[in-house]
Amino acid sequence: MNAMPAAQPDPMAPLRREWTRLTPAQRISRWLVWLVCAAAVLWAVRSIDIIPEFLEDAPEQMADLLVRMWPPDIAHYYPAVHEALIETLHIATLGTVFCFTLAVPLALLAARNICTIRPLNTLAQLGLVASRSVNSLVWALLFVAIFGPGAAAGVFAIAFRSVGFVGKLLSEALEETSHGPREALRASGASWGAEMLKGVWPQVQPAFWGIALFRWDINVRESAVLGLVGAGGIGLVLDDAINFFQWERVATVLLAILAVVLLAELVVTRIRARLI
């Protein structure tokens, strides 16, 4: 059997015109995007301050570090690491609890259907954004300067960092609530507090617990590093071990952090599945 002859009179020729997915303008804009990306990467590669010798022996050094970490010094876990771990969990939980004292009022002010004064909305939103843009470690630095080193600074750093995140999500949940129950309550002569508690709260409750759990999970991760700037928790133990080059201990601490973070994620997904 031969292949089909190519040049045959073709009755379907009009149907065979070339179809293209993109218009020329689209194609050019796509190329431009790629060009910008490539240029950004090129600029970064050419001007970044990387010492070639460091890059060259990086794999060797990483391997060396891993070898030094093995085997982990399990004996070091109790009591030093264990207590620091408990402190870290306390910092994360207390930070999450405290953040609501600031986040709930700000969220109420930021939600356009609850607070109808526009300048106040904007102001609250600005506060939330400011809280989110400053990293938790930077908050920790500030609070270490205020409270001195220790867990107190960690709790406040976690709380202030969480306000922006929780407040934003909470205000979005508030804005999505239905107006009906509130109006019904108001018609029956309920006070503002009762209106919030019985008209709005039941509607945002699932979102509220979801946000709280989600943030707690993030806070467990974040509170593990706060000790690096002196704000208490397991980061302190980690920092000490690294500064003394006790790599087996570092491995123990890292494994402990890993276990707690994975456990926290598991707990959160379990509770979420049951709650929501």
């Binding site: 460091f54 974040e222 690294i242 890292l254």
Partner: peptide, 17 residues
């Protein structure tokens, strides 16, 4: 995902300067 990037950064600083 589980290791905070600052912890990873410390390890890399110790390993590759």
């Amino acid at each position: 995902r589980s290791l905070h990037y600052v912890i990873v950064a410390i390890l890399f600083v110790k390993a590759i300067g």
